[in-house]
Write a protein that binds this DNA or RNA. Structure first.
Length: 562
RNA sequence: UGGGGUGUAGCCAAGCGGUAAGGCAGCGGGUUUUGAUCCCGCCAUGCGUUGGUUCGAAUCCAGCCACCCCAGCCA
């Protein structure tokens, strides 16, 4: 069964449709998702994954490769490779054949470098990094030729071989393409193809001490894999002439077409691997998979479903115009999915004890509660009702106007899936704080409305003796600024939301949640969607992460009145 | 007088010369034992701007404006 929903047509699928019509690739379409294993994948990558793997699933006979673009060993690691692979799989990406590595092509890439040298199209340059910057020119003025530009083929071959043998220190020599130092496109001013790095590589070990640059590696890797459409983000647009130059100047049959699309920007969010890494490294969050992080691992732990993320990606579309997507769209996607699939349960976050004075002491009744109001096929469960229950502090007021549809002193409210109760008395502590409530219930109201009066309020509750203790983590947006990294003058961490995590240590949940099914999202009625966190729950009380609140129009109304 | 891009509602986005889809958000109403869900309605005489071509322009042409990307031995 296909994991991906039919991809919404976009300018790239239009190009593919045309190519297919013109029989450009024998009816075969091959894309690839090429992450560098130097961090975790985030929502921005989800857009690319949905695009590339979505195309592979949508077109008959199409395929998508997963390839690690691992040409910078010092910043990469096997841990990241494992995490990325897990996340792609979780999102539903099914790659064709084995996992690929650009590093597996190092021999061939090296051979192509030799070919360029032999053709006089690449040379070893021995300028220092500073000199190279100085001779590159500026955005508005041309660069100047390197004094090493006219080295003989024999010298270049010799020098490049000695680079490979490890004879030189890092930074002393590089291999450069000989293109045009006066090109208005800076990427064409004799770009570096290979640099020396005496570093251990997570895949190739000590085999190499020269590593190819992205601009040289990528087109070759694509071509070797028979990629037809190489999709990347807009910032690589200026690199396309170089991508084409490489393939036009080496002996290789395949020439994939690079197409650029706009990357995802989300408000109140940071989607830059570098910045996410900073949050992790400075311990401003609890690792790459902190539920507040926009990483796929964090979102998974928070309770986001793969399907909701895919729906979100489909909703935002794929274009060349860069905008900022409202995070409300992401929240809509997860609510939409969870509303449909999450079993309902009751959990009281801020418990207030209620004694039902006319209910017999010691008596327990099992009330039947449907697991989903719109889906009877999900069944029902028994929830115990007894003389003492907990309701939420927020659901009681000594006095309130008619807009407050909850429990008020002297008034009635329905306990969800149970009886109607009336608050008769408020018992307070010596310092005036509410300690508990004395209420009475109407035994005639189970499953039916009371006679002669209307009770419009419904609140959730749990039986005091049967409730289980749990820890609940309420998450709010990580940043309290719409565009946390929008100002170059200030550090984005200045906009971190100090209340992004609120730990509730003493929540009371209905007994059925004592052994929650891992991976199963729940809706705590009237509160939101919650996801059991096995990592944090280990050994102690169960911990539930709030994925997202329910849509709350009351909060808006009430907030507006203050 | 560097090069490359992008401008359709608060946000995302269809539109491909024939008279502005859809979604999110918002607003109004209905159903409801979740202030949820669901349902109904409203929300661009207007497509960055100014001209031009045309019977007809968001779509074609020209100028202008705004914003984004590029000077890593990162990807």
């Amino acid at each position: 069964m296909s994991e991906f929903e039919a991809i919404k047509p976009n300018f790239i699928t239009q190009i593919i449709d045309k190519d297919l019509e013109a029989n450009q690739h024998d009816g075969k379409i091959v894309t690839r998702f090429p992450p560098e294993p130097n961090g975790f994948l985030h929502v921005g990558h989800a857009k690319s994954i949905c695009l590339n793997f979505g195309i592979a699933e949508f077109y008959a006979g199409a395929a998508c490769n997963l390839r690690f673009d691992d040409t910078n060993p010092e910043k990469e690691s096997q841990d990241f490779i494992d995490a990325i692979q897990r996340d792609v799989e979780w999102l539903g990406g099914k790659w064709a054949g084995p996992v690929r590595y650009a590093s597996a092509y190092f021999d061939q890439i090296h051979a192509f470098a030799l070919e360029l040298i032999q053709k006089g199209k690449a040379y070893v340059c021995s300028l220092t990094a500073e000199e190279m910057t100085a001779t590159r020119g500026t955005l508005k003025s041309p660069g100047t030729n390197s004094p090493y530009r006219e080295r003989s083929v024999a010298d270049n071959l010799d020098l490049f071989e000695r680079m490979r043998q490890g004879e030189f220190a890092e930074g002393t020599h590089v291999l450069r393409a000989k293109i045009d130092m006066a090109s208005p496109n800076i990427n064409l001013r004799d770009p570096i193809l290979y640099r020396i790095r005496h570093a251990h590589h997570h895949q190739t070990g000590e085999k190499w001490c020269i590593y190819p640059m992205y601009d040289f590696t990528h087109p070759i890797s694509d071509a070797l894999e028979g990629i037809t459409h190489s999709l990347c983000t807009l910032e690589f647009e200026d690199h396309r002439p170089l991508y084409d130059w490489v393939l036009d100047n080496i002996t290789i049959a395949c020439h994939p077409r690079q197409i650029e699309f706009a990357r995802l920007n989300l408000n109140f969010t940071v989607t830059s691997k570098r910045k996410l890494k900073q949050l992790v490294d400075q311990a401003l969050v609890d690792g790459w998979d902190d539920p507040r992080m926009p990483t796929l691992a964090g979102m998974r732990r928070r309770g986001y479903t793969p399907r909701s993320i895919r729906n979100f990606c489909n909703a935002i579309g794929v274009t060349r115009s860069e905008g900022v997507v409202d995070v409300a769209m992401l929240e809509f996607a997860i609510r939409e999915d969870l509303n449909e699939r999450a079993p309902r349960a009751m959990g009281v976050l801020k418990p207030l004890r209620v004694v039902i004075t006319n209910y017999p002491e010691g008596q327990v009744e099992q009330l039947l509660a449907p697991n989903h109001p719109q889906r009877p096929e999900l069944g029902s469960r028994e929830i115990p009702f007894s003389r003492e229950v907990f309701i939420d502090v927020e659901d009681f007021r000594e006095e309130a106007n008619k807009h407050f549809k909850r429990l008020i002193l002297g008034k009635e409210v329905r306990l969800r899936n149970g009886y109607v109760i009336r608050c008769d008395e408020v018992i307070k502590t010596a310092d005036g704080a509410i300690d508990h409530l004395l209420c009475s219930y109407d035994p005639e109201t189970l499953g039916k409305d009371p006679e002669g009066r209307k009770v419009k309020g419904v609140i959730h509750w749990v039986s005091a003796v049967h409730a289980i203790d749990a820890e609940v983590h309420l998450y709010d947006r990580l940043f309290n600024h719409e565009s946390p990294d929008g100002n170059r003058e200030e550090d984005f961490t200045a906009h971190l939301n100090p209340h992004s995590l609120c730990v509730i240590a003493d929540a009371k949940l209905e007994a059925s949640l004592a052994s929650p099914q891992a991976e199963l999202p729940y809706q705590f009625e009237r509160e939101g969607y919650f996801f059991f966190d096995p990592v944090r729950s280990a050994g102690g009380k169960p911990v539930f992460n709030r994925t997202v609140t329910l849509r709350d129009t009351w909060a808006k109304v009430e907030g507006g009145q203050d």
